[in-house]
Design a protein around this nucleic acid. Structure first.
Length: 294
DNA sequence: TTCCAGGACGACA
DNA sequence: TGTCGTCATGGA
């Protein structure tokens, strides 16, 4: 049992980024999150169960369906906290948006939502899958890619996949991806980026260490990664609270719904500017508002 | 039929 | 430095 920093709405936060029931690399049900992770160079199934309330959140940790040994739990503690964004100070964020009635209302409705994180490489590929197409179709593309190049792992009667490694995708033939209905561009972006990671020219591991602006510039220097992809990746995979993917169609729609005015990208970026270090959480809450009715 | 989805690239002026 | 056409598919 790991006590987490309140407030934290486990179910809402876990559900937020996961919009497909066909997801192969992780499995979620109400209050439960499951994913294959690497621990001591072996693949294990990590299961997190919500066992608390929003103002006193506790998560129960399982490893391959059993309680972890104390030494394992010590290893998993930072992994779990990282995955669940346990370093996010929601209280400070709520204080900051209190001056903006629409946002303050949203923060109240979504109390306890914070950004769970995901592995960088997997999220980068996922974000490229999602460029310009509907989320539903992006999931179809990801599913095909994972089934073809991922590593299946049996866990409790269910097959979870380890996401395809850069090596696997570096060796992939772009024609295989176009046969799966990836556009020629996306097929090339993904295999090229995988090859550059394998060769060491592209180093995703340096991203957590560098400031957001530098990270966006570094990512954008690679073909296939534009501003939206760079910013979305930093928000989604690293939980950066200071990025605002102003080019995002969903964000534009959310702002239109909340404020009644449709803003183009420059105006949307200007809108987010004053929120400074909290722009990422503003983006998160706006995106979540689109699904608040579901 | 047209437009729009959790865009990016390359050609062109 | 901006603008425009193109790529892929599916739902509204």
């Amino acid at each position: 049992m790991l006590p987490l920093k309140p407030p934290f709405d486990f179910a809402r936060s876990i559900r937020f980024w996961r919009r497909s029931t066909g997801e192969l690399c992780e499995h979620t049900t109400v209050g439960v999150y499951r994913r294959v992770v690497l621990l001591d160079n072996r693949l294990v199934v990590l299961t997190l169960r919500s066992s608390g309330v929003i103002d006193a959140p506790i998560v129960a940790v399982e490893l391959d369906g059993r309680a972890p040994e104390p030494a394992e739990l010590a290893q998993l503690d930072p992994v779990v906290r990282w995955l669940l964004g346990d370093d996010t100070d929601l209280g400070a964020f709520y204080g900051s948006v209190a001056t903006d009635p629409p946002l303050a209302g949203l923060a109240g409705r979504l109390y306890g939502l914070r950004a769970p994180r995901a592995p960088l490489w997997e999220t980068l590929v996922w974000t490229i899958c999602g460029q310009q197409i509907s989320v539903a179709f992006a999931y179809v593309l990801k599913e095909r890619l994972v089934q073809r190049y991922g590593e299946p792992f049996e866990a409790g009667g269910r097959t979870l996949y380890r996401f395809p490694s850069p090596d696997a995708l570096a060796a992939a033939d772009p024609a295989d991806l176009t046969a799966m209905q990836f556009s020629r561009n996306k097929a090339g972006f993904i295999t090229d980026l995988a090859q550059q990671i394998v060769s060491g020219r592209f180093d995703l591991d340096r991203l957590p260490e560098i400031p957001t602006n530098d990270a966006v510039a570094y990512l954008s220097s690679f073909r296939g990664i534009g501003p939206w992809t760079a910013e979305f990746l930093l928000l989604r995979a690293l939980g950066r609270t200071d990025v605002f993917p102003a080019a995002d169609a969903g964000l534009r729609q959310a702002v239109t719904r909340l404020y009644g005015t449709r803003l183009a990208e420059p105006a949307l970026r200007a809108f987010a500017g004053p929120w400074g270090a909290w722009r990422g959480l503003v983006a998160l809450y706006l995106l979540a508002s689109l699904r608040d009715d579901e």
